[in-house]
Design a protein around this nucleic acid. Structure first.
Lengths: 248, 248
DNA sequence: TATTGGCATTGACCTCAATCAATTTTTTTT
DNA sequence: AAAAAAAATTGATTGAGGTCAATGCCAATA
């Protein structure tokens, strides 16, 4: 198992992950598709997956156009995916927090259609897809989990797509906050009120399809109305009911 | 094998499909995920799938909220999927032509997140998902095909999502036309220039996230510029290069 | 043939958010 | 700590496209 050690890395916890990256020890196993596998299958999964990191902020985990052979899960840190359209503009297509899978856009495609970029110091689990497919043939449960991940992704993409046009910037922002709150709380606990944003507001604006200026103004408005406390690299949730009301 | 026979149905071709709906005889088998299966597996697939129809225009094939147990493929006719958002607005999320799979949004979800509605007289192939999963365990090829369908769907959804915002109505419309031309030509031949639209322009506008009026104006503009000949229920393609140029 | 209803089209108007431009704030580098 | 770079904010302006309202066009039914 090879591990790249970033020059500035002095983090013991990260080194621990590198020393033993078995699923059994993984911090995000409760969120993983390996959920419920027996010891033999878990062993097989261990052999087709490996921990990689640390990726520094801005570092690419895979590139658009790479040939597809793995899917990924975030172990720690955070990741964004973005695609470059024909006219050179980049579009952020997703943000991924610990325990979430990414890179599935490449399945069945000739080439991966997006870049994956670390947003902070990040460790990921790389899961080789061909062996995973084989293992799925022997493990109905794993196969089912994998299908579920894909189905959810499709459902979510369509939902995003739906909120595409005909939706006020305010509503889009509120939905984004609502969704992020749910995801972070499922990781850190439902009482969390203070949210740190791993991604820049520029990225969020791009993801939501609004100008950074519009996002800024919208957040200020939500702040002035007392729903959130807007901060430089995060926000405090003051009135989730109000946010939900605007999110619709 | 049960077959519903619509009251007005006098179409012999359709009756033929009903009499023997084995995959072997299916008109769209060259586009199906069964591609390349051996006789034994094809037989198994036959037993977990069945032809259903005819659905009349406007008739629902499945409903939002139904519990998920099948995916579908269009055999003849055309289908749209649409979701109703919390605020009561409906959003068209996809159009499906013969040979294309739909209903995969429900995979791994508690409930199907959209309606599927026939756009004209339509026959579909209903594929029971649980048995399909099982069969995939025995057939790596089938499993691979199914993953590919899902991966493509994800990729496509994200692409749609991407083009949702920061994109001029003109470009969105051009992309839609370009995509439709490709799909119809893969069905009917690459020389086709005259395209009948199975869906209303209202549906198209909704799908693209623009007002029907905007779609109308945009099509008129493309018509005036000589790229297409805009018609009530279709269009003639005059200059595909120009359309591609605008589509980007 | 007249009538009804559903789309599609067209014009007038107005709103929201993109863009441009200028600071200010935060983060990184020296 | 100072300087430089990057990100975020704010204001002013503008334009794409949504909304409203009226009209035209078929196709289906009487």
């Amino acid at each position: 198992m090879q591990v790249r050690q970033g020059k500035g890395e002095k983090n013991n916890k990260l080194r621990l992950v590198a020393q033993d990256d078995s699923c059994d020890k993984c911090a995000t196993k409760r969120l993983c598709i390996t959920q419920g596998l027996d010891a033999e299958q878990l062993g097989a999964f261990d052999r087709l997956s490996r921990t990689r990191g640390p990726f520094r902020p801005g570092e690419r985990i895979f590139r658009m156009g790479d040939s597809f052979h793995s899917i990924y899960a975030v172990q720690s840190g955070a990741v964004k995916t973005e695609a470059v359209s024909d006219d050179g503009r980049t579009q952020v297509t997703g943000f991924y927090l610990p325990g979430e899978q990414f890179g599935v856009e490449g399945i069945g495609q000739a080439a991966i259609p997006c870049d994956a970029i670390a947003l902070k110091n990040t460790w990921v689990c790389e899961i080789a897809f061909k062996p995973l497919e084989e293992l799925c043939g022997r493990s109905p449960l794993l196969q089912h989990h994998l299908f579920s991940v894909l189905g959810e992704k499709i459902c979510n993409s369509e939902y995003q797509f739906m909120m595409g046009r005909n939706m006020r910037a305010e509503r889009r922002v509120a939905r984004f906050l609502k969704c992020l709150v749910l995801r972070i709380r499922s990781l850190e606990g439902s009482e969390v009120r203070q949210f740190h944003l791993p991604m820049s507001k520029e990225d969020i604006a791009n993801y939501l399809g609004v100008a950074p200026e519009t996002l800024s103004r919208t957040l200020r408005k939500l702040d002035e109305e007392g729903m959130i406390r807007n901060e430089a690299k995060g926000f405090e949730l003051l009135d989730i009911e109000a946010v939900n009301r605007i999110a619709g």
